[in-house]
């Protein structure tokens, strides 16, 4: 039985003169945890937006969860895809609290004219408990720290009950302690729910050791891909980033011990 959940063929995405993706092809199997690394401007975020239908293809095709992505199906497929972006600047006066923000994750699946029930709110409270911010549920969303905000974003994606989980630099712009906690949470979530997960980062130190496959991107192309053992090598990464890269021992050993 074919358990491919994402199938991208020769995808090209262009923003005016800039070609963000140049003929990318990729297959992802159900339950895989994939790390996507590469320098800034490599096309990592664009690859994620192609998967959730927000990136506009100028060539190629994408099939997600058995359906070909096009303008009409994008909305209904996005209900089944959780997306966590990097910490954004939020107006501290925004009139919405953490619990309501997390509930937004349910709204796509709920559909128009349906209101959240007590069960939905109970699910939200349970997920807030799981991500460790139940005590902040009534706090205005704009008052959270970067780490707390990312926990809320992960909670929002989880209440969506997604089949695919896309994480776009979720640990960028937050301190090291919060980075560590978010990475632990992401790995816990993967072990618990076994969702197909794609994790984008430009920072090797924030690559979760749970990654089963690494995709190395450069100049809008998949430059190399393979197991962490075969790709996390100093000569490979130095070529990828165009600068000498040394892999800290703890990162190399964390990948070996997690396999």
């Amino acid at each position: 039985m074919d358990n491919t959940v994402i199938e991208i063929q020769d995808a090209v995405v262009s923003y005016r003169e800039d070609v963000a993706l140049q003929g990318v092809s990729l297959e992802v199997k159900k339950g895989e945890f994939i790390g996507i690394i590469g320098p800034n401007g490599a096309g990592k975020t664009t690859l994620l937006t192609v998967i959730n239908g927000l990136g506009k293809l100028v060539h190629g095709q994408v099939r997600v969860l058995g359906s070909r992505l096009d303008g009409k199906r994008g909305g209904s497929l996005r209900k089944r895809i959780g997306y966590v972006a990097q910490v954004e600047n939020i107006d501290p006066r925004l009139p919405i609290n953490v619990r309501e923000t997390v509930m937004v994750g349910c709204y796509g699946r709920l559909g128009l004219f349906h209101r959240p029930t007590r069960t939905h709110w109970e699910t939200v409270d349970k997920v807030l408990e799981m991500v460790g911010i139940a005590h902040l549920s009534q706090r205005p969303i704009g008052h959270l720290s970067g780490g707390e905000y990312q926990r809320a974003a992960i909670a929002r994606a989880l209440v969506q009950q997604p089949e695919i989980f896309l994480l776009d630099e979720p640990t960028a712009s937050i301190d090291q302690k919060a980075q560590h906690e978010i990475l632990s949470l992401i790995q816990l979530v993967h072990r618990e729910y076994r969702m197909t997960t794609l994790f984008v980062t430009h920072d090797l130190r924030t690559l979760p050791p749970i990654c089963q496959r690494l995709i190395l991107m450069k100049d809008g192309r998949i430059w190399q891909q393979g197991s962490p053992e075969s790709t996390l090598r100093e000569e490979v990464l130095s070529q990828l980033y165009g600068a000498p890269i040394s892999i800290p021992t703890e990162i190399a050993s964390s990948f070996h011990s997690s396999q």
């Binding site: 959730n52 996005r78 972006a85 796509g108």
Partner: peptide, 13 residues
């Protein structure tokens, strides 16, 4: 009005 990007990402029109 509070999270437009998120609204789009969760499948709200």
């Amino acid at each position: 009005i509070c999270h437009r990007g998120v609204a789009l990402a969760v499948g709200i029109p």
